[in-house]
Simulated assay, not measured.
Amino acid sequence: MKIIRNQFGIGPKVSLFTLGTMRAIESKAQMYSVLKRACLIGINHIETAPIYGPAETFLGESLEKLNFEGIHPQGGWIITTKIIPNCPLAKGKKQIKGMLKRLGVEKIHNLAIHGLNLSTHLNWALNGDGYELFEWARDENLIEQVGFSSHGSYSLIQSAIESNHFNFCSLHLHLLDPERIPLAQKALEKGMGVMAISPADKGGHLHTPSQTLIDDCYPIAPIEIAYRFLLSQGVSTLTIGAQSCKDLDLTSKLINANDPLRPLEKVVISRIHSNAKRRLGNTFCGQCRECLPCPMNVPIPEILRLRNLAIGHELQSFSKERYNLIGKAGHWWETHNASSCQKCGDCLPRCPNNLLIPDLLEETHSELLDSPKRRLWE
Rank of each mutant, 00 (worst) to 15 (best):
P85S: 06
A55H: 01
D129I: 04
G130R: 08
L35S: 04
N67Y: 06
I71T: 07
E106W: 00
R37I: 03
W77G: 10
I113T: 09
K36F: 00
H121I: 12
K94I: 07
A49G: 06
G75W: 06
Q30I: 05
K97C: 11
E47I: 15
G115P: 01
G75P: 12
I71M: 03
Q30N: 07
C87Q: 14
Q74E: 15
A29E: 15
T80R: 11
L111D: 07
G104H: 09
G53V: 12
E26H: 02
E64C: 05
G42H: 03
I96C: 03
R37W: 00
E135K: 15
L118P: 01
K97G: 06
I79V: 15
L89D: 07
F58Q: 10
G98I: 00
F134W: 12
L89N: 02
G42C: 04
M31C: 14
F134P: 03
I78V: 15
L116M: 14
K93H: 04
Y131L: 14
L118D: 09
E61A: 04
G42M: 05
L40V: 02
M31L: 02
L59W: 08
I46R: 08
W124I: 03
F134T: 12
I51L: 13
P73D: 05
T80G: 05
T57Y: 14
K101D: 13
E47A: 14
L133T: 12
E56S: 10
G104K: 12
G75F: 07
G92Q: 05
T120K: 13
